[in-house]
């Protein structure tokens, strides 16, 4: 079983603590994202696993075997760096085949290039490729020797928005098709939530939450995580017996009785038929949806995400809540 287990990892640069006792376990064949703002230590964590940095404390094990004393070339860990870092003097085929030895090399090169959708590109040179193609070649190169683990370091940040989405999908598909175990490091919430099975949220050198995307989104471990992984709607309320009374009305809320801070996501606020309880004060229109700022009694303003047609500013609307709120201490 080639599972990655990181325990108590710590790495400092001078007085700066980059990674401060991080724990992370990735199961075989799993695709996991480490998500955090810039400077949270996620790239350092990845570089420690790859063997480019030497941790100060803690352990890194693959399939139960410690690897933190090994040089990078003995770890069987593939890396896809930010801008691909293709060897500029080697063709695509020789880039992808760099980590392969012996017979069957050409076959495996063709196979992984096919997996990333670049079959037949062996003879091209890196400078002849587009940004997205380069990233996919970098992925194929990392996958080719069938490493026990593949690390992707913000691999899509250099691509423009439209391209990023399609390359993400192709990369995730290729990794799954090859049965690879992979860790994706990113600061992009959409990327983390859409691509992987589990998300590790990292803050100030620690993993603060490690759970499937839906759980991280709906049940974040603390208010900071709640705001970091997506748009958050905060409202105050009184919790009693699994429900909270708020300006929006009764909201399902599991938590200790008493005053609380409640988290909703904008799409949970639904505009509907019925007695108007709010006024539309502002509309940000995005085409596929719109963010509507709603003014409630007592000066409370909340944002709602509305699909399809948006109401006009000044209109009186009826607002109801879908699903439950997440309860935090006030």
């Amino acid at each position: 079983m080639s599972e990655l287990r990181i325990e108590g990892l710590r790495k400092t640069f001078g007085d700066t603590v980059a990674v401060d006792g991080a724990d992370l376990t990735v199961a075989e064949g799993e695709l996991v994202a480490v998500l955090g703002p810039s400077g949270c230590g996620k790239t350092t964590l990845l570089r420690c696993v790859a063997g480019f940095e030497r941790p100060d404390a803690g352990s890194i094990a693959m399939a139960g075997r410690r690897i933190d004393h090994l040089p990078p070339q003995a770890r069987r860990v593939g890396v896809v760096p930010q801008e691909g870092a293709l060897f500029p003097h080697l063709s695509v085929g020789r880039n992808v085949g760099y980590g392969l030895r012996g017979s069957g090399r050409a076959g495996r090169v063709a196979e992984v290039l096919e997996l990333v959708g670049l079959g037949g590109y062996e003879r091209r040179m890196p400078h002849e490729l587009s940004g997205g193609q380069r990233q996919r070649v970098a992925l194929a190169r990392a996958m080719a020797p069938r490493p026990e683990l593949i690390l992707l370091d913000e691999p899509f940040s250099a691509l423009d928005a439209g391209l990023r989405q399609s390359v993400r999908g192709e990369v995730a598909a290729a990794l799954r098709a090859d049965g690879a175990t992979a860790v994706l490091v990113t600061h992009d919430q959409d990327e983390a939530l859409s691509m992987v099975e589990r998300v590790a949220v990292m803050r100030e050198g620690r993993i603060v939450q490690f759970a499937p995307p839906a759980e991280v989104y709906r049940f974040p471990v603390d208010p900071w995580t709640a705001s970091f992984v997506g748009d958050a709607v905060w409202l105050d309320g009184d919790v009693a017996a699994g429900a909270a009374s708020t300006v929006v009305g009764e909201v399902a809320a599991e938590g200790p009785d008493g005053p609380a801070r409640l988290l909703l996501r904008p799409e949970q606020l639904r505009l509907g038929e019925g007695e108007p309880n709010a006024t539309v004060s502002e509309v940000e229109y995005f085409g596929h949806d719109a963010l509507v700022t709603l003014a409630f009694a007592g000066g409370v303003r909340l944002r709602s995400r509305v699909l399809g047609g948006a109401p006009a500013a000044g209109q009186r609307v009826s607002v109801a809540v879908d699903g439950a709120a997440r309860v935090f201490a006030p």
Partner: peptide, 13 residues
């Protein structure tokens, strides 16, 4: 230096 690191991760001494 990234190129050298990538090469190392691909098993090159």
């Amino acid at each position: 230096p990234q190129l050298g690191q990538v090469a190392a991760s691909l098993g090159a001494g």
